[in-house]
């Protein structure tokens, strides 16, 4: 009988030791991170390629959601699984000198190569039409007001811009470059906007010729298409990750 007791006891002791020893024994290659995202503006004035100097007096821009991807292309069909995201829409004053909070980035550590995002108007998988988020200014992605000057000519304009996804289940900008290697939550994401550059392809000569003051740019017009080219191709958002104090 004693034999039995000794055997069972030693067995239980070993099991107990193992259980304790295993408590901290986990090695992982990726961890969950969460950090702040802010919108930062750069240079409210810029030359357009046809010689006009554009100055904005108002730029209320809806930003988000943002999905960051480890793949080279962030498109929803090539990147079904994001490495990080900002799952919300924030309307910022793009002319504010100080960084505006954009919400929190939630995701995992690792390499980021691309991003896929909207300007407040999304067409998620389960929505039958592109839908603006409730907080959008007038239901539009952005409201811009400003003037363009070339020599003695002055054009003042307002623009309601809708950046709309092309197909159901896609983002308005289905892919854009965003390179980073995120190690921990001691990070901050800066989304850099250069709003005046969004008007680089606008034909102000033609607008000046119409003589309308202020010239209202509405969705569906050629000038609206030019602003979309500015937003997507000529002066796109830039994404910078910087070190920050751990939260």
């Amino acid at each position: 009988m004693k034999h039995h007791v000794v055997l069972v006891r030693s067995f239980v002791v070993v099991a107990g030791v193992l259980a304790v020893a295993l408590a901290g024994c986990v090695e992982a290659s990726q961890e969950a991170v969460a950090y702040d995202a802010v919108a930062v503006s750069r240079d409210a004035a810029k030359d357009t390629s046809s010689g006009w100097i554009v100055t904005l007096s108002r730029a209320d821009v809806a930003l988000g959601p943002f999905y960051f991807c480890a793949a080279a292309s962030g498109s929803s069909t090539l990147c079904a699984s994001s490495i990080a995201e900002v799952a919300g829409v924030t309307v910022v004053n793009a002319l504010a000198p100080a960084p505006s909070p954009l919400g929190r980035v939630h995701g995992f550590s690792g390499n980021v190569q691309s991003v896929s995002y909207d300007f407040g108007i999304s067409w998620f998988d389960t929505q039958t039409a592109a839908t603006p988020a409730p907080s959008l200014p007038g239901g539009h992605s952005m409201r811009l007001e400003g003037e363009a000057r070339k020599g003695a000519m002055l054009v003042s304009f307002t623009a309601d811009v809708d950046v709309v996804p092309q197909y159901q289940g896609q983002n308005a900008l289905s892919t854009a470059s965003a390179i980073a290697s995120v190690e921990s939550s001691a990070t901050r994401l800066e989304v850099v906007l250069h709003p005046a550059g969004w008007l680089r392809q606008v034909d102000f000569d033609a607008i000046a010729a119409t003589g309308k003051v202020p010239f209202a740019i509405r969705p569906g017009s050629a000038e609206h298409g030019a602003i979309l080219v500015g937003i997507k191709n000529l002066s796109p958002l830039e994404f910078r990750w910087t070190a920050a104090a751990a939260p």
């Binding site: 959601p65 994001s82 995201e85 829409v89 939630h106 995992f108 998988d125 988020a133």
Partner: peptide
């Protein structure tokens, strides 16, 4: 569809 904006993070 637990939230207004779908999450694409695992």
């Amino acid at each position: 569809q637990s939230g207004a904006v779908p999450s694409r993070v695992p």
